[in-house]
């Protein structure tokens, strides 16, 4: 019974990854694409957790943390880039970029 539920969850999460891909390709503005990338990252975390349960192994649990950190850092870097045009901001050349 649990196996059926897990496979259903896999299908639903894959569908939401596909929806995110559509938004990335189609998205009218840059923040749309970044939001879709963030959603795909979070859905991948769920996918990895479901695969862990299906294969009854704890080997992939590190991947969950790694995906979380990478999705967050990517979103932060992209939003700083969209907002200011730079990712790293130094105090001494702040005037050049504002």
């Amino acid at each position: 019974m649990l196996q059926v539920v897990l496979y259903t969850a896999l299908v639903l999460l894959s569908l939401s990854v596909v929806a995110g891909l559509y938004r990335i390709i189609r998205g009218p503005s840059m923040p749309d694409r970044v939001i879709a990338l963030d959603t795909i990252g979070i859905c991948l975390i769920g996918l990895v957790a479901v695969v862990c349960m299906l294969q009854d192994t704890t080997a992939y649990l590190d991947i969950i943390l790694l995906m979380g950190i990478l999705a967050f850092l990517g979103t932060v870097a992209f939003s700083k880039f969209i907002e200011k045009g730079v990712v790293m901001e130094h105090a001494r050349n702040r005037d050049d970029h504002r």
């Binding site: 923040p31 963030d38 943390l65 979380g68 950190i69 999705a71 967050f72 932060v76």
Partner: peptide
């Protein structure tokens, strides 16, 4: 980690969207 970072990321990207 997901609980802490997801609202922060959402706030940052919303702000960037409005400013851009």
């Amino acid at each position: 980690f997901v609980l802490i970072t997801a609202p922060v990321a959402g706030h940052l990207i919303g702000r960037a969207a409005y400013k851009s």
